[in-house]
Design a protein around this nucleic acid. Sequence first.
DNA 1: GATGAATGAGATTTCATTCAT
DNA 2: AATGAATGAAATCTCATTCAT
Lengths: 223, 223, 223, 223
Amino acid sequence: MKQETKVFKENLIIQAAETVFRKMGFKNAKMEEIAFEAGITKVTLYTYFQSKENLYMALTYKAFHRLLDGYYASIEKNKHKSGLESSLALMETSMNFFANNFLYSEALLDYFNTVRSSDSGQNKSKLTEAINQSLYFNKLQDIHNLPFKLNFKEIERGKQDGSILSQLDSMLITLQGWSMVTGFAKILSASGNTVKPLFNIDLNELKNITLITGKALLLEKGK
Amino acid sequence: MKQETKVFKENLIIQAAETVFRKMGFKNAKMEEIAFEAGITKVTLYTYFQSKENLYMALTYKAFHRLLDGYYASIEKNKHKSGLESSLALMETSMNFFANNFLYSEALLDYFNTVRSSDSGQNKSKLTEAINQSLYFNKLQDIHNLPFKLNFKEIERGKQDGSILSQLDSMLITLQGWSMVTGFAKILSASGNTVKPLFNIDLNELKNITLITGKALLLEKGK
Amino acid sequence: MKQETKVFKENLIIQAAETVFRKMGFKNAKMEEIAFEAGITKVTLYTYFQSKENLYMALTYKAFHRLLDGYYASIEKNKHKSGLESSLALMETSMNFFANNFLYSEALLDYFNTVRSSDSGQNKSKLTEAINQSLYFNKLQDIHNLPFKLNFKEIERGKQDGSILSQLDSMLITLQGWSMVTGFAKILSASGNTVKPLFNIDLNELKNITLITGKALLLEKGK
Amino acid sequence: MKQETKVFKENLIIQAAETVFRKMGFKNAKMEEIAFEAGITKVTLYTYFQSKENLYMALTYKAFHRLLDGYYASIEKNKHKSGLESSLALMETSMNFFANNFLYSEALLDYFNTVRSSDSGQNKSKLTEAINQSLYFNKLQDIHNLPFKLNFKEIERGKQDGSILSQLDSMLITLQGWSMVTGFAKILSASGNTVKPLFNIDLNELKNITLITGKALLLEKGK
DNA sequence: GATGAATGAGATTTCATTCAT
DNA sequence: AATGAATGAAATCTCATTCAT
């Protein structure tokens, strides 16, 4: 099969999987139904993705790349603006991504949950055989630090151009930013896939205040 | 069976479950093994906890109470201090809790993921029958807003006593605080259950900066 | 489960398997249908017999014991008769067994086909993993020479009591006897499970002439 | 495609099949591997032979003709000898054939097993669709009685020329001869494809005694 | 209340066979 | 005619959960 054809079909299947996962959740989704949705047989589905978990990892991989694309676009768009503005734009990009892509958001959060400590090689027992053998899982492990690195670079740039005043370690700031974004995503995911009020709070307000807090962090002079 | 005996045995089982979940993760844990760990049979296990998910909910319920206990203790301890100090102490309490109780931390985050939008009644379909029937799940739903409410109260007190300057909606601040704490927990969980450096960042530093950021939030005057 | 219960159920299942195998042949028989016939689930079926092939081996094992029972009964019945008569009775017993139990007959012939050279350890590749792991297959290997040994003993007795005149090696005679019986069974199985004419020959005639030939063999004086 | 080319390729494939069947046995042999061995693809394999069973039938057909060739050669060679000698030569021919061609031997025995009662039209259900449609299977059915007929003729000739004394029905004798030969083949196949001792019996001895027994059968005067 | 056995639902695998190009 | 991809049918396995005693 020509490469394009293969990739095309893989995408077709992933889309079908997204549809079914969205409707049923990962656990209740049936491979049979995903195959049906994709218009192929179970066996063919297994030819492309060797396990349900690998399929989910493929979806996660796609989600990750979408997020990354957003990062690159944001950085490109703000390359003539200050490092501060670019950094905040990255935060906003992330939050929008999580707010607009419920399934992807969950997949990414799941991934970071799964991958925990597998860097360090311990606790491998928590990883299913299927996960360990997943091509996409392994690909993800190779790139999952990229967002941090991109963010880090923009913060450094901000320090250079004087727009970011914080004396804190750039990686520390990056992590704290990611932490806030992650927290936001978590709350989002806990409040459903449609942006709607939670305790009478509009999630947009929460996004804004997260940005404001982030900005404060970047401008924080004292230790 | 006398009530104490029953409770005693339940706790025994939950402890066994904790051991197994810690080792294998929820998904990979087998009821068989939990029963074995508790020294009983699977069926007896089912007599006490009607489903794997209910068992997990029981564990979550326990975790939730631990967290709540920390909240109450913190509030009590800081009742003569300012609302600002008390609020920050609550943040710290949460972070310490998450940092020191990896399994509980995951359980609580999972719970808030699961409970998503079940407030609003939609998406019930994604909740398993087992979850819906879980006594502990239902008990949790009755109290899961308590931390927010306690936090809210301390913030309000801070506004009263002038220690908190922010004009933002107290619930918004509460949520933002929770978001930051959640993000912190997420990063923790993604970096393993032992506090250890991530990108050369000590998690204590991350905790500190989260607190600092939180403090900035509470003192933020402008909009 | 008490041993008797277990054995009882195993027999129940084997009977169901016999029914289905008889109707569909081994290859076309479905585990699902055998389970249904036995009034249990597929999974339970697999609990008792780990593979379709193992189930067939269990059936073969049973068949083998039926044959053996016939041998013992025949020997017992003829213990006061001459070794010649007992030997011929054994031949007749075998032929009747094959003539009356089509499925068992096929199973035994299949077995001796399968087992070929596995004694010598070579050609293991022809044995499925499932076969190799089959308890019944291994049990069969321990006893599959018994009929030969029993036959051998009667021939020796015949030589002692003077009823058998042949100077040929007793084991050679045994094998030749088995060969004739096997050939008979093969022709039977090739002519259907009901005794009926083949080339206008009634199978009873064939049996008789086989016996006559066998008798000639035992009385053969010259080399 | 020119006829010769086609036949050439068919033979090529059959040889590949023989190699694989010899190594794995019919059941465990995979069409994929046969195709690979023949240096073609699976689909091409299917172009030539429409099913695995048909391929096996083609092989069987070839085996059958080899056996027949042996019969004709034996008869030709002994046409000036007595019917008795010719008949015994046929037995020996068969046994040698079986002893020297393990795979063919199995194929032929399988065939006679498969064809069972399809003469009589019943039990057709056990014949696969594939078998029924097999050209080679149908060709075989047209000739599978030939060996019996040839044998029958030599026995009749022996009765004419006085070399065979038996008063038994010639077809009955033929069948009994076939039965003994078949039994011999079966034992061979159960003892591996190399002639080697079984219970310390050399298979040549077994062949000899089978011949002796056969001779006794033909000379048997009484009923 | 405890136990061993059984169930049900779905994941995964294996291959002979067929389709589309 | 040849190829790579796909199908279909059934075997097998894994576990949470339930039944019968």
